[in-house]
Write a protein that binds this DNA or RNA. Structure first.
Ligand code: MN
Ligand code: MN
Ligand code: ZN
Ligand code: ZN
Lengths: 132, 132
DNA sequence: ACAGCTATTTAGAACCATTATAAAGTAGAG
DNA sequence: CTCTACTTTATAATGGTTCTAAATAGCTGT
């Protein structure tokens, strides 16, 4: 199994459900963005076993904690996740609610000049909203 | 009344509730960030009349539509609003969930090199997450 | 001032994404 | 194989936000 070690090495038991979700999330050429609802639909499409919604939530959160997924900061009634966990940015199309990756090279270096005492920077994310 | 014209000029009737909310939101030296829940508490503290939660939601959304407030893109179970509607950025302290303004001058110019066909850029917002 | 019209407020219900619960099932260690 | 901790699951609960529809209030024209 392709993802057995990935899971074992993170201290996550490689259950059938987790392995199937791994295939949907990580077996693709390109990375992608998704909501839980979209992932649930994709699972129903692509696999014949049923995976409960609770397990989908549990798994996505477990993967996020391990750094295999990240949330995208955006105002929406649903959480958007990203299978691209490298530092990068996003276009957000206000018309259709879709996200498009913006590579670091498309944005250029961002130099935060202000410091906050006792805190360090964990991430810098740019959201570029698009309209017609 | 200080906010009568502001409201009338936007096509919003200057009701007692809207005028009172204006005072809480816009009568301050500094701009600030808030959730609906925090605004509701502040209203209970500062004014003696009761304003229903539905009216608070209605008013905040009306003000946002008129450009007197904006939402801050961030992952949270609640929407964060900002009384600072100029283009600027934010630190987000993951420890306590608080936002701190980052002026454009603290970030430097951001040059988005990539274009999306048929779309134009409405806003560019940077979120800098802080950890210990 | 008054009538008539429309916008607004309101309490409460509904909505719905997410989280909690607790019982049944499963993986891995020994 | 057994034991235990972890995981899955159906289902309920939670909680922020939106909807509903009836009451109220601002505004325009007279
Ligand atoms: Mn199927
Ligand atoms: Mn009071
Ligand atoms: Zn992305
Ligand atoms: Zn701000």
């Amino acid at each position: 199994m392709k993802y057995l070690d990935k899971l074992r090495n993170s201290g996550l038991r490689p259950t059938k459900q987790r392995l199937q979700i791994c295939e949907i999330l990580f077996d693709t050429e390109k990375t992608f963005h998704f909501t839980i609802n979209e992932l649930d639909k994709k699972i129903k499409d692509k696999i014949d076993d049923k995976i409960s919604l609770a397990t989908i939530y549990n798994t996505v959160h477990a993967f996020e904690k391990k750094g295999y997924l990240k949330q995208i900061p955006i105002n929406s009634n649903q959480i958007y996740f990203d299978t691209n966990v490298t530092g990068h940015h996003h276009f957000y199309d206000l018309k259709d609610g879709k996200l498009i990756d913006l590579e670091n090279s498309d944005v250029g270096p961002i130099n935060i000049k202000r410091k906050i005492n006792g805190k360090k920077i964990k991430s810098i994310e740019v959201l570029v909203k698009l309209e017609e």
